[in-house]
């Protein structure tokens, strides 16, 4: 999948998984930080995003540092998924 399409797909999945009912995918800046600033997510949301990666993309992120980097922003999540696909493929 192209990164642009993946980013749009992730935005929709994040809204659904985190119950961000007041947001549309267009409201989410893919480069903005997901936590504290930007969407202002918290540690419970982090758990849900890890679950999203596992359920939707079959990726289990075990290493805490890798997890932190992968969840920096929507772009970072997309890059992580694509890099994972490459290494798997």
């Amino acid at each position: 999948m192209e990164k642009t399409a993946l980013v749009e797909q992730l935005k929709a999945q994040i809204i659904e998984a985190l119950l961000l009912e007041d947001l549309t995918p267009g409201d989410i800046d893919p480069a903005a930080p997901l936590f504290v600033e930007g969407l202002g997510l918290d540690s419970i949301d982090a758990l849900e995003l890890i679950l999203l990666l596992e359920k939707q993309y079959g990726i289990r992120v075990e290493d805490p540092k890798e997890r932190r980097d992968a969840l920096q922003s929507v772009n970072a999540m997309a890059d992580y998924i694509l890099s994972h696909e490459k290494s798997e493929g």
């Binding site: 998984a17 119950l19 419970i44 758990l47 849900e48 679950l51 596992e54 359920k55």
Partner: peptide, 9 residues
């Protein structure tokens, strides 16, 4: 496996 935390809370 892979349980969401929100319904648990």
């Amino acid at each position: 496996q892979s349980l969401s935390s929100i319904p648990f809370i």
